[in-house]
């Protein structure tokens, strides 16, 4: 029983981190109707931006997270402009495939600059807190809170500001939004910036918890897609629910499935989601 509780706690913590890039994926999908798979590389870009800020420049973790948000967001916008936007006329599939290629290019740029070595951020290693036999790591709690804060901030931006409303309007109907005076292209850029910025934040959170290497994004990206698809492509609350469900499923599955197969949970979730809720749990498209 204690073990189940421990897995629940771990699952919620891991799920909150997964939800951050899943939201990023979904906000881009909602506004541009495009699956931008280069999100994996932008997680890595964020992790290295955080590494640069934290280790090379000596900034504290929160500033490293901010730097990662800005740099991944900017890298997302620039790479979208150069590699993906010219292809939009050829349809969503063409763009999605191009984004896979873009992912490889970005990941290799990261490799070229930083090399293949595994690096760690400069944060003190702290022992877990133990409550009634349940282990909770201080770093994990910090990461959990940052993830929640990032999600609340994004959610508030979308819900309570003019620009957030405008972005949701473009997601609903870009033509009508254009008639109403909103530049859909500008909102698309902003969505990519925010979405990939979220990926960057996730990159630093993962780096803080684990370590940085160029494949850091590829290691989690399947779970991120699973969360996005399960929650409903294009849905922000869906991404949160999807992230938590995938986080929990990956942890709890270890009770019944050998751990070597726990990566398959992501696949299984995608397949199940497509069979049972083709539009995702909270999807409306």
């Amino acid at each position: 029983m204690l073990q189940v509780f421990q897995l629940l706690v771990n699952g919620v913590m891991a799920g909150a981190i997964l939800a951050v890039p899943a939201i990023g994926f979904n906000i881009v999908f909602a506004v541009l109707q495009i699956s931008n798979f280069s999100i994996a590389a932008l997680i890595a870009v964020g992790a290295y931006a955080g590494y640069t800020a934290n280790v090379l420049l000596g900034l504290p973790p929160l500033l490293a997270i901010l730097a990662a948000f800005l740099i991944s967001g900017a890298a997302g916008v620039a790479s979208d402009r150069l590699a993906l936007r010219p292809l939009r006329g050829y349809g969503a599939i063409a763009v999605a495939i191009a984004s896979l290629a873009l992912n490889m290019v970005l990941e290799n740029i990261v490799r070229f600059i930083f090399g293949n070595d595994v690096r760690s951020l400069d944060v003190p290693m702290m022992r877990d807190w133990i409550f009634e036999g349940i282990h909770v790591g201080p770093q994990a709690v910090f990461n959990f809170l940052v993830a929640i804060a990032a999600m609340v901030a994004l959610f508030s931006l979308l819900s309570f500001t003019t620009v957030g409303r405008a972005m949701r309007a473009v997601a609903d109907n870009p033509t009508l939004a254009n008639i109403k005076g909103i530049d859909p292209e500008k909102m698309a850029r902003l969505a990519v910036f925010l979405g990939m910025g979220m990926a960057g934040i996730a990159g630093v959170l993962l780096a803080l918890d684990t370590a940085v290497d160029p494949t850091i994004g590829m290691r989690v990206v399947l779970s991120v897609f699973a969360a996005a698809v399960l929650g409903g492509l294009g849905s922000i609350p869906g991404a949160v629910v999807g992230g938590l469900l995938i986080g929990l499923a990956e942890q709890l599955s270890t009770l019944v499935v050998p751990v070597a197969y726990s990566s398959a949970i992501g696949f299984a979730a995608i397949i199940l989601a497509l069979l049972l809720f083709p539009r995702g749990i909270l999807g409306d498209r």
């Binding site: 771990n10 891991a14 993962l206 918890d209 290691r219 990956e250 726990s262």
Partner: peptide
């Protein structure tokens, strides 16, 4: 375990 992941808490 599957070494290509980031989370090995379990």
């Amino acid at each position: 375990y599957d070494g290509r992941r980031t989370d090995f808490r379990a």
